[in-house]
Amino acid sequence: MKKKQAPPGGDGKKNMLWGLFGSFLKIGALTFGGGYAMIALLEEEFVGKKKWMDREEFLDMVAIAESTPGPIAINAATYIGYSNAGVWGALVATAAVCIPSFLVIYCISLYFDRFLTIPWVARAFSGIRVCVVYLIASAGLKMLRGMKKTGRNLTLMIGVMVTMLVFSLTAVRFSTAYYILICGTVGIVGETLRNMRGGRAA
């Protein structure tokens, strides 16, 4: 199935939309631990069971989801929804993947403050907060291992890390957004310089 058929009209299209809604509702309700856990489930559902896309197309989609901003689950839902049923498909799939989270978290938010005032819960959360430090540190180290250790990458990484740490300890206000925009610009400038040098050499 290299080329997608045009989305069917009438009942066929309605069935497709319901199918997307059901699949993504299930995926939104059953994936724990964020994006990467979801990718395995998506593959099983759409490549394995429903055969709406082949493996190659699926891997392309994952590559796009990883290199565009935003939650990977949302990127994937929008992409799969659109490629199977156009803009409505994208809308239905994206809404469906958010609905379980939204309902569960909204209910939790109503009681969370009171829940934390129960003594044994408060004690448990003293431990859990330590675990969050551990989780973020270990996620950071894992990404550090996967990063290409070129001079430029290490400079950017250490530069961002030290600046952020110093600013946050000295309460200097500097939006996190700037780090991303500055580093992205460094990437673009570096590439442009390389091209110019390459052009002159050739």
Binding site: S67, G140, M161, L165, Y179, G187, G190
Partner: peptide, 27 residues
């Protein structure tokens, strides 16, 4: 090329941000 060049700068930035956040929260 430009998309990839942008992302190539963002990737190390995100690693630095996560490690800094872990350190701040750890402290």
């Amino acid at each position: 090329r430009l998309t990839n060049a942008f992302l190539s700068g963002v990737r190390p930035c995100v690693v630095g941000m996560i490690l800094a956040t872990a350190l701040t929260m750890g402290l």
